[in-house]
């Protein structure tokens, strides 16, 4: 009975959603073109090339035009790590004592030791070149966290220092906020650019954008490694029910 009701409700919701979105259409230009009124997309793209000299428009929007969003988003991640730690808190028996997930064979341990430095290098490459090619702080940070995940799964007694993680994270967060506030000192707004912008498609271009994205990369990497480490430390009360 309940299932029938739910399916009816979902059918109504789905019908109206589909009606609205098919009315909008796929791949059309939704905006009226005129000289006075431009869609915000065109202004962003024009500003990206002419004023900021950044190749990747998504990066310039995430870091510069919508910088407050990114600051809030990094704060949300930090809050989620804190909530995870406080919800799963329990008196530890020994330091570094964690549930052994898999008893890894020597092939896995040797292979992950071999793969760990290239994964870190790939992550660093992705977030340093965030303003030139697809990628950026979030993606690079996640890739680095994946490398730590590999090591944590392969070695039973591999530990990550919580102090080091929190130091890296706070330092990256402070860098972001201070660079944002330094925009005020030059008479601008928050996250106003104050460094020379260079030329398009150079590694050193875009003013403050690469610096901020590197800070975001370190912060995301530290936070996600903290999430994985906290969850991995959790010992089940009983195995498989």
């Amino acid at each position: 009975m309940k299932k029938v009701l739910v399916i009816l409700l979902l059918a109504v919701v789905g019908f109206y959603l589909a009606d609205v979105f098919i009315g909008i259409g796929f791949g059309n230009d939704h905006f009226v073109k005129s000289d006075e009124i431009k869609p915000v997309k065109d202004i962003y793209l024009q500003q990206t090339v002419e004023n900021l000299k950044v190749s990747n428009a998504v990066t310039s929007i995430v870091v510069n035009f919508r910088g407050f969003d990114t600051l809030g988003e990094v704060t949300v991640l930090f809050l989620s790590v804190t909530a995870l730690g406080s919800i799963l808190y329990r008196k530890r028996h020994h330091a570094g004592d964690r549930s052994v997930l898999f008893s890894a064979s020597s092939i896995v341990t040797a292979g992950s030791k071999l793969l760990f430095p290239p994964i870190l290098l790939l992550g660093a490459y992705v977030f340093i070149h965030g303003h030139l090619s697809p990628g950026g702080g979030f993606q690079g940070g996640v890739i680095i966290a994946t490398g730590f995940l590999l090591m944590l799964l392969a070695y039973e007694n591999y530990t990550v220092s919580h102090n080091a993680l929190s130091i890296v994270e706070s330092f990256a967060g402070i860098t972001f906020a201070v660079i944002g506030l330094m925009g005020f000192m030059n008479g601008g707004t928050f996250l106003q650019n104050f460094l020379p912008v260079g030329t398009l498609n150079d590694l050193f271009s875009g003013g403050i954008i690469p610096i901020i994205y590197i800070a975001v990369g370190f912060k995301v990497a530290a936070e996600l490694t903290g999430v994985i480490y906290t969850v991995l430390n959790e010992k089940g009360d009983q195995k498989n029910g």
Partner: peptide, 19 residues
């Protein structure tokens, strides 16, 4: 690019919510 930036943020926050 604006919608892509929004979704980029939304994916990362979605992971935090799931965790």
């Amino acid at each position: 690019p604006l919608l892509q930036a929004l979704v980029l943020t939304a994916i990362v926050i979605g992971f935090g919510v799931t965790a």
